[in-house]
Structures are given as structure tokens and as C-alpha cells.
Amino acid sequence: MASFWEYANPLKFMRTTDWLLPVVTWAAVIVTTVGLVWGFFFTPDDFRQGSTVKIIFLHVPAAMMAINIWVMMLVASLIWLIRRHHVSALAAKAAAPIGVTMTLIGLITGAVWGQPMWGTWWAWDPRLTSFLILFLFYLGYIALWAAIEDPDTGADLTAVLCIVGSVFAVLSRYAAIFWSQGLHQGASLSLAPGTRVDWAYKAPLYISMVGFGLVFLALLLAGTRTEIRARRMKALVTRERMA
């Protein structure tokens, strides 16, 4: 049984993703299409919300991924700081722009949904505010990566920022809840009995969520491959200069 850490070797990672990336990409396209088409065209209108409810199939998966991607970056940062695997640091770097896009999708679809539902594009509600704050954290993280020239220094500093930022992001979340009681409904999905969302919605929603996860994975693999190639080019140039 090969160790999981073998994939932390850039060469091994590239070889594996050579065949894995197309598989994941196609899976992402198919699953997301199925989830969204089913969700948009083959679900009944809500008796109160009408067809506007269908934006849920974009909104919820994107919002969920926005948080999951930050968590993934936190894990990757920890792995980089502890085990110094380059792929891990580069994956965190590649994940950030995807995360910020997901956050933005979540915010925009939320605004579009909120307008007919609550009569307002924006409300300073704890959930909305937390997402806006998360957006700012993503921006800071990306800006720090962009500002540092030495790649290993950049990886170290952004990893520490990600860890410290995570603590403050959680604090901000609780501060925002404390600060305002909001309009936003509770979590759309819950495992508790007496669930609020019907299966007719749940099935396509789950499929969309898996689809978004696959989309992220595909983009992440592609982004990480780009980062690895960029590092490799740098290493080659360095080697050339020394020879």
C-alpha cells in the first residue's frame, strides 16, 4: 500500500493527475449539469417562494464550498508548516482564487434571491456579514501571496496568516451572530428529523453539492498543476543560470 504522502511529491502528483484530472473534470461537468438541470427545470415551484427558490441549487453549494475551501486551505497550510510538502503549499495557493469565487457566487446569488424574498439586496445579517468577512479574509490571503517574491517565504507567511486568520474568522462569525439577529433562515439542510426541505428539492441539491465539490477538485488540480509547472520553470531557469 503506497503512502498517502507519496502524492506530496510533485512528480508523483503530476503523473497521477495526468489521468485523474480529465476523469474529475468530466465527472464535475456531468454531475453539476445533472444537479442544476434537475434543480432548475424538474422541481416544483415553492408555494410561497415561487420559482425564485431554485437559485438554492447555486447558492447553497457555493456557500458551502466557500467555507470548505477555507478549511481545506487551513489543512494544507498546516501540512506545509509541519511536513514541508511543496504540493500542499501550492494547493493552498491554487485553492484561494476558487474559494473567493465561490464566496462571491454565494453573495451574489444570495442578493438576487434576497431581493424578491426579503425585499432587499443586502441585510446586515450574521450569515451575510460572516460571508462578507470571509471574502475579506480570502482577499488578504491572496494579496499576501501576490506580494511575496520568494515562493517558500510566501508559502510560510501565508500559511501562518491562514491559521491566525481561521481563528479570527471563527471569532468574527460568533461576533456577527452576537451583533445582530438576522433575516436569514437557518441552515437549509439538517439531519434532524422533521427536515424543512422536501426530498424533491433535496435530491438535486445534494447532487449539485457533490457537483460543486467536483468542480472545485478539478479546478484545484488544474491550478496546482499550473503552480507546479511555474515552480519547475523557475527551478530550470535557476539550474540553467548555475550551469
Binding site: G140, S172, F178, W179
Partner: peptide, 15 residues
């Protein structure tokens, strides 16, 4: 950059 990094970290204290 410093402002961009520090201000989000100030949020809980501010609130």
C-alpha cells in the same frame, strides 16, 4: 497590504 491583512482581524474586537 498591511491594512488589507489587519482590518479583517480587527473585526471581532470592533464588534
Amino acid at each position: 497590504l498591511l491594512s488589507l491583512l489587519v482590518l479583517p482581524l480587527y473585526i471581532p474586537t470592533l464588534i
